[in-house]
Write a protein that binds this DNA or RNA. Sequence first.
DNA 1: TAGATTGTTAATCGATTAACAATC
DNA 2: TAGATTGTTAATCGATTAACAATC
Lengths: 208, 208
Amino acid sequence: MTRQKIPAAPSIRRLPSYLHLIRQAEAEDCEFISGTLIAKELHLEPIQVRKDLAITGIVGKPKRGYPVKPLIAAIEHFLDWDNKKNAVIIGAGNLATALTGYQEFKTHGLNFVAAFDTSSEKMGKNIHGVSIYPLDELTVRTKELGATIAVLTVPSTFAQECADRIVEAGIKAIWNFTNRKLNLPDDVVCQREDLTSGYAMLCVMMGE
Amino acid sequence: MTRQKIPAAPSIRRLPSYLHLIRQAEAEDCEFISGTLIAKELHLEPIQVRKDLAITGIVGKPKRGYPVKPLIAAIEHFLDWDNKKNAVIIGAGNLATALTGYQEFKTHGLNFVAAFDTSSEKMGKNIHGVSIYPLDELTVRTKELGATIAVLTVPSTFAQECADRIVEAGIKAIWNFTNRKLNLPDDVVCQREDLTSGYAMLCVMMGE
DNA sequence: TAGATTGTTAATCGATTAACAATC
DNA sequence: TAGATTGTTAATCGATTAACAATC
């Protein structure tokens, strides 16, 4: 059984921000970058940055900081972003169009190979070059294209139904943009991006 | 100074899921709903649900559970979802279209009153009925329409620049969908939805 | 060398979970 | 009444922060 509780989850969530900053340093031909600097830029504590970077296995140099190129490699390897992953996207609406259009995902190994929808008008069309197919073809196309990730962007009411089809197609990782908790087998991992959670946070912060 | 660290943040993030489930119970004319049931549905511990609901001030009845209608009211009031809030959306692209199309936000008090973009082709058009204006009109329109929230959906490279304009327009709450940390005055609150963080989590989970 | 920065070890803080009396 | 469920108080767990020796 794949455990859904990931150790050091908050650290993992911060790594992409570090990576972005470190890539900027690389573009400016810096050979080293210090945790102190990263912390200042992102308004974090230096000790937190050092602890977070430590999970990638990188070792820094006192007084200099971390070597930029090896640090980038270490973060990308830790996140498995140096490996290409094929993804299908279920629901070819505006959110799907936004996601397939993010070039950043591609540079981090995420490759959209097909989109699926039930609306007959969309068939034969594409979103940012990703062809749209009928949902019924999900299993066949998944095998054919070697997809290992499913991105779920359908209306919430169809979330579970689509999740079942995704599981049926043999996909073991779901990126769930609906606000529904999915019932899934233990060997399928799921990352939920719940926008209503974020909105709730914003509302509470506004009242402080 | 508004503190950005919110106590009980994880609890707040879970409340919307509870609310959704409790609304379903209401639709089925249940008078009470137990924390035990909510926990089972969402794969959480009952004690966690009880603790979370306690922050809303609701009091349950032993053996029965929580009274559904007062519980809904308590959660909505705690999240300030019983108050209408006007929002502008900066960047009228696919993500903006997706967000303005979510009916759920409207039922939670979020009312999009205007969209802003710099592309001249988009002027005079609308997304889900929300008119698109030139970014230069942000300050004027914000005052005119009484907007208190800005939703930022522009490409990352323009994030800080747009944030500065949002601050200039007098808006004190930003829902930031770019992957950039924004530099903001202390009295402006910001909720960041970092999709690359979520993707990082999914990647690490896949490797377990 | 002097001093900034690292990595380690310990302390603190906050969130989750456990135990259990109260109660409808 | 008996038993399921609540709310409180305490224990555990994990993440953040602090202190500081090591070092380039």
